[in-house]
Amino acid sequence: MGETQVFVTGMTDLFQNIGYFALAAAEPTKEPSVIGEFLQYAVSISPRLFEGLKMTIAMTVCSLALGIIVGLIACFCSISRFKILNMISGAYLSIIRGTPLMVQATFIYFGLSAVLGITISSFVASVIVLMLNSGAYLSEIFRSGINAINKGQMEAARSLGLPHGVAMRKIILPQAFRVVIPSVTNQFIITLKDTSILSVIGVAEMMRQSQQLVANNFRAFETYAIVAVWYYVLVIILTKLFQLLERRLK
């Protein structure tokens, strides 16, 4: 894990020292320059954004962990030989694909709670929405990964007397897993960024935090630029982690 560790400690150092960099940049001129002021502001809002970041990461991790499970189930339903399961997963996929994430989120958070008379926290609601959303897309990714494996592989396994389930588990899935890593990375990034949409139901993630900052100080340009950088860095870190994983598997 040497490479990963170096990367992680490097990133931690960077975060810890970001204040010093900002101060160093601000120091030379007595009256603060535009850039200096910008950096100072970036540092001053970082505790607030860090709170949001924790929420963003929690949402992403929870919904993707569940989304993978949902995706696998939906994938096996769609390749099953039972028509009824095909139909269920087909309907699920088409509903998720056919409606905007923001509609799904508001429907579940406001709509369902109104009808069912239960209140769910905005965090739970957003994890459910993102789970269902990423699950649908992941199921398609998994399915295409399985289909990408030459059918001769299944035939060879079956010709040796291996039952379908064993052939799937030991021959097809391990190969499909490698095939889908790039697409799964992509979906993870999309879900990570989609958490920002959940600001609409009031989850205190990064986007929501920055909106509240702007509501108080009207510094929209700087605030949103800064939060964009935070998202960007987060996505880069995620991408790097998956590239490491992919290289390891080769």
Partner: peptide, 11 residues
């Protein structure tokens, strides 16, 4: 059974 395309398990 032996296949035209060998079908060994590449992983």
């Amino acid at each position: 059974m032996v296949f035209q395309q060998f079908n060994l398990f590449p992983h």
